[in-house]
Every structure is written in structure tokens, then in C-alpha cells.
Amino acid sequence: MSRALHPLAPRLWRVASRTVELADVVTLGVEPDTDAGARFRPGQFNMLSAFGVGEAAISVSSRPGDNLVGHTIRDVGPVTHALALARVGDVVGVRGPFGTDWGVGPGPGPDGSPGDDGGDVVVVAGGIGLAPLRGAIDLLAEGRRPGSTTVLVGARSPDQVLFADDLARWSRAGVQVEVTVDVPGPGWTGPVGVVTGLLDRTRFDPTGAVALVCGPEIMIRFTARALMARGVDPDRIRVSLERNMQCGLGWCGHCQLGPLLLCRDGPVVPYAGVVETLLRQRQR
């Protein structure tokens, strides 16, 4: 008797490209087994597995419509280590896409928050947090919106700046791109300091502006605070949050943040209201 694939069973997709982004970061381009497999919205994630090792939640870092589905992975634990070592031709397990997206384009924002009215967009990314934003920035950089697009990136050091080629490409397409580092190195002439420092000297109109923020939780909190101080409506600040995820289906309970099951209600959530309160509380 043959049954439908269990929701926890992986589809078997082949790695078709492997790009070393940084010393500990690679992007795997995997080839979907069906056209439907490539359908996702920027901000969503897949559960990616290295067989016999385990699964990890990895954001999709490519653009909808690309032939390969990109997963940018930092080698930090047993699963991400095994995935980072995958070679072209290897088979990895894929489940997804899961969760909410950045809501770029027409329609309401995540969780019914105000949609994009064509105002300015400010994207703020810390470290690997740029990965889930890449597809969204690609769409914004197409320049079909009246408002401007700004991308602010914080990295630990110049050699930790992710997607340098994309940053240059977006800049050429008219996106205002700024990069700051915590620790400068030889030849670095750009800003030094936390990413919120870039906000103070960025030109954008806060009225109707939408902000997309992803990075370490502490960075998200301070960025949201700075954005609000600049006059951005907290309902239009969208943040991508991370918790332990094991199923992606709202079954396993690991990704709870108060009332939110982040695999289902997130990862992209409006900052205003419950999220702001939750992130202020310790150990939630």
C-alpha cells in the first residue's frame, strides 16, 4: 500500500551549485523535483536535511523564479556542518516552504499589518540575516516602486560581509547600500559600529515607509527602536525571528514565542504589539 508522503518526510533534491560565500558560509542551489517545489515567497524557509545527521531550518536566499532554490548556510552545528560540506550532485532532504514572507509587493503585510503603499523601503540586515532578505531585495531592486530602497548591512568585519557582489549589483540598480563593520581591517574606509548607526544618516521618508529587519535578536530590537525614533510606523516594521524549529508544521512546539508558533505565524512578523513586548521580556 502506497501512502502520500508524510509531512515530516523529506523530498530528495540534488545539489546543483555550491558557492562559498565566506569562510564559514556556503550557498547551496538545489534543484526542485517538481515545478511546485520552486514556489516560495522571499522570507520563507525550508527544512533542509543532511541524511543521517538531521534537519535545520534554512531560509531561502534565492529569488522566486530562479531555477535553483538557494540556501545560504553558516556552518555552526552538526547539521549545518554536514550541509556545508555537501558537494554538487549530492542529495539533500527538503521540506517546505514554511512560514510567512516579507510581504514585498501589493497586499497586506504579515499578520494583517499594513501593506506596502509604495513608500520608501528600508532593509536592515545583520550578518547571516541578509540571506532571507536577498530575494526580497532583488524584487525591490527591480525599481517598479515609486519609493526608494535602502539596504543597511552590519557585519563583524570586512571579510564577513555577505553577498558583496549582490550589494554592488543592487547599488548599481539605484538601491542605497550602506555597510558597517564592528571591527575594521586593513583598507576598510567605510563606517565602523553597529548597524543602527547607519540609520541616523540614511535618507528616507518615514511616512508610509516599510522596514524589513533580520539579524541577531538584540540587533532587531535596537534597530526597531531606532526606526521608530525616526518616525517609522511600528506596524510597518517587519522582523524575521528565529527559534529552534523541528517540524515547520506547528506540531513540535519548539518554536514558541509566547502566543506565536514562529514556523506558522512567523518567521516574518510585524514588530508592533506583541512581538515588541515579548522581545523585551527575558528568556522568552
Binding site: S49, F51, G52, W251, C252, H254
Partner: peptide
């Protein structure tokens, strides 16, 4: 209802994905 999803392998290369009760 919390659960873990765990992958295991055996010496023949066989693979299993199991769901197991977990506790917060």
C-alpha cells in the same frame, strides 16, 4: 504535544526519521 524530529542512520547506510515526545 511537543516533539523532537530526529534522524538516525545505521551501519548499512539505512536512514530513519523519528518523531519522539519532547518536553519544554
Amino acid at each position: 504535544f511537543c516533539s523532537d524530529v530526529e534522524d538516525v542512520s545505521d551501519l548499512s547506510g539505512g536512514l530513519e526519521r523519528r518523531r519522539r515526545w519532547a518536553s519544554c
